[in-house]
Design a protein around this nucleic acid. Structure first.
Length: 413
DNA sequence: AACAGAGCCAACCGCCAGCAA
DNA sequence: TTTGCTGGCGGTTGGCTCTGT
């Protein structure tokens, strides 16, 4: 049960502050300092409630407040921090000197959130339309070519299946019995054998989500994972994909927005390019960095991590198992120097702002830098680069390969 | 010029945690 | 342990401004 509002007292003024009121409040605080808000109005000669005075001071009158348009760097910081902290505006404000939580909150609600949502819509449209021409056809393991793409009938998994196809198209993968190739070829195994996409569409089609769900189910079924590089990989992926959303949910009364893809739509960039004084909002600069080729890999990694996180939630002991399959030779130890797949392009690209926007979606938290692991480092965050992301993707693939080695039969059957 | 709708943001409201009595 | 006070937080609102018709 909450207390009665302090502003219910009859006769107290509400609404916009006048310059005279501001001056009274300012003078009083300069003379007596902050605090004692309940008694302050009377002492300062104001017909306001204490709470109103405190807010006016904190959000407007304080001398160390920076007002005006947010710089690209500040916007970037907000997006990055929001991905980890959620709607904890005060915590975000602590990382933005001279900005108030209220101002950041307003900026997010009126601009940034809108642009992110538009970006997501744009991206979905972009990829759904492009998927018809860029999808890579997989070969079945028996050598016949179904000449059909997987998941083409599912709009929600377009990006994921594009990347899975991209992975599958890798020369290395093509020349081996890679787990992804096996997984991706499954729609045709599961069908009636004629490789007809129409047939598959009406029967059992494995899109990327299904693949990942299957992966998750298998993990759960076996209730354990080998204690080897897979263990570390999974742990890394889970810690990155799971932490932010859990954290945000814990600290935010309302759910923060969850956007599958971040890409800067033309509409946004156009709007921002007209910003006065060319005071580059982040968005018009972002437009220059848009690289559609970089997006799907992020998304599929996110999807993979999300599914694996589900496994973790359902089976907390998963990461503590110590079955040593390395020693038994079932799984080979990776020396880290030769990733499972070499995917050209994004991994070699320099980090751009767009990468960081993309990372907002994933909510990456840098290895080892969390409040739990590093006392005193609360809210101090570092972000992975795109090249690191490439490594992660390789590791996830390695994980899947190893998993297939152990549980392949269960996945296929 | 007048109007409507959208955008923006200062301010309000309800709730909560910390603290002291 | 309970109660009340205080400051702080995040969601929401209302009014002002801008923009388009």
């Amino acid at each position: 049960m909450g207390r009665s509002p302090c502003c219910n007292v009859q006769g107290l003024k509400k609404g916009a502050w006048t310059p005279e009121e501001d001056q009274k409040l300012l003078s009083y605080i300069q003379q007596h300092g902050e605090g004692g808000w309940r008694s302050l109005p009377q002492k300062a000669g104001l017909s306001r409630c204490g709470k109103s005075c405190r807010l006016r001071w904190a959000n407007y009158l304080r001398p160390d407040i920076k007002r005006g348009a947010f710089s690209p760097e500040e916007e970037l910081t907000i997006v990055r921090l929001h991905s980890v902290l959620g709607n904890r505006w005060s915590a975000i404000a602590k990382n933005l000197p001279k900005r108030t939580d209220n101002e950041i909150k307003n900026h997010w609600n009126t601009r940034l959130k809108k642009c992110l949502i538009e970006s997501a819509a744009y991206h979905h449209q972009n990829y759904n339309s492009s998927s018809t021409t860029s999808t890579i056809h997989l070969k079945k393991n028996d050598g016949t070519d179904p000449a059909k793409s997987i998941g083409s009938n599912t709009s929600t998994t377009t990006s994921a299946h594009l990347l899975l196809n991209e992975l599958a198209a890798s020369p290395k993968l093509k020349s081996s019995n890679n787990s992804l190739a096996l997984l991706l070829s499954q729609p045709y195994r599961a069908g009636n054998g004629d490789g007809d996409v129409e047939g598959a569409r009406h029967k059992k089609v494995l899109n990327s989500v299904t693949v990942l769900n299957k992966l998750a189910t298998t993990c759960l079924k076996h209730n354990e994972l080998p204690n080897c590089t897979i263990h570390d990989t999974l742990k890394t992926v889970l810690s990155k994909s799971c932490a932010p959303s859990c954290d945000a949910a814990k600290h935010s009364k309302s759910s923060s927005i969850s956007i599958p893809i971040i890409e800067i739509p033309n509409k946004c960039s156009t709007v921002m390019e007209s910003t006065k004084e060319g005071n580059g909002s982040i968005l018009d600069q972002e437009a220059k960095y848009v690289n559609p080729a970089t997006s799907p890999r992020v998304i599929v990694l996110n999807e993979m991590a999300s599914k694996l996180a589900q496994v973790k939630r359902r089976c907390p002991a998963l990461l503590n198992k110590s079955t040593d399959l390395v020693a038994s030779g079932v799984v080979t130890e990776s020396n880290g120097s030769s990733p499972a797949l070499q995917i050209p392009g994004p991994a070699e690209s320099p980090v751009s702002r767009n990468d960081l926007w993309l990372l907002h979606d994933i909510g990456f938290r840098t290895r080892g830098v969390s409040s739990e692991e590093t006392p005193g480092a609360k809210d101090e965050l570092k972000y992975v680069t795109f090249s690191e992301l490439g490594d992660e993707l390789d590791q996830v693939d390695q994980f899947m390969r190893n998993l297939m080695s152990n549980f392949g039969d269960d996945l296929i059957n």
